[in-house]
Amino acid sequence: MNESGRSVTRALREFHVPREHLMVVHDDMQRELGKISPKNGGSANGHNGIKSIIDCIQTNDFHRLRIGIGRPADDTRAQDKVSDFVLGKFTRAELEILAMVTYPRCWKEWPALFLPPVEN
């Protein structure tokens, strides 16, 4: 995930998708579990996968949908603890929040992000 820019670049090229149509959905430790927030452009804000995309496509001007995952219980910023937290599995309760609240809200509030483009 930290090097997702290569895959994104390849997908944009192979599917002939202009960069301005790129939408990246990603985790965000700065938001509590399940909170969603759209963003257009800006910095990677410490997210290595987003940094990789910015580096590879040579712009930070793309759409993002950030989904909160919260922080480790002890609110540590130690790299090993953060990595374990980000790469860890959601609990059953966390999955229920995502499935019952977050994902339906994404669908309701930002349906255009999840529907294929209409062809003329």
Results as ranks from 00 to 15, higher is better:
residue 89 K to E: 12
residue 100 M to S: 12
residue 32 E to S: 13
residue 14 E to P: 01
residue 113 L to R: 00
residue 16 H to G: 11
residue 75 D to L: 13
residue 104 P to D: 12
residue 11 A to I: 12
residue 35 K to D: 04
residue 98 L to E: 07
residue 14 E to F: 07
residue 57 I to S: 07
residue 28 D to L: 04
residue 74 D to V: 06
residue 29 M to T: 12
residue 57 I to M: 02
residue 91 T to Y: 05
residue 64 R to I: 09
residue 69 I to E: 06
residue 34 G to W: 01
residue 67 I to H: 03
residue 16 H to A: 14
residue 98 L to S: 00
residue 11 A to Q: 04
residue 82 V to Y: 02
residue 75 D to S: 14
residue 82 V to A: 03
residue 118 V to Q: 09
residue 31 R to A: 10
residue 120 N to K: 14
residue 4 S to H: 00
residue 41 G to T: 08
residue 95 L to E: 13
residue 49 G to C: 06
residue 96 E to V: 12
residue 74 D to C: 11
residue 120 N to M: 10
residue 85 F to E: 00
residue 27 D to W: 11
residue 6 R to L: 09
residue 75 D to F: 15
residue 23 M to N: 01
residue 89 K to N: 14
residue 30 Q to G: 09
residue 63 H to R: 13
residue 88 G to M: 05
residue 76 T to K: 11
residue 1 M to V: 09
residue 67 I to G: 01
residue 2 N to H: 07
residue 118 V to I: 15
residue 28 D to M: 07
residue 23 M to H: 11
residue 64 R to K: 08
residue 69 I to H: 08
residue 107 W to P: 00
residue 69 I to V: 13
residue 84 D to S: 15
residue 109 E to N: 10
residue 52 S to L: 01
residue 25 V to P: 01
residue 110 W to N: 03
residue 35 K to Y: 04
residue 15 F to Q: 11
residue 96 E to Q: 11
residue 18 P to F: 00
residue 89 K to D: 13
residue 87 L to Q: 08
residue 61 D to S: 14
residue 86 V to W: 13
residue 80 D to P: 08
residue 40 N to P: 00
residue 96 E to G: 01
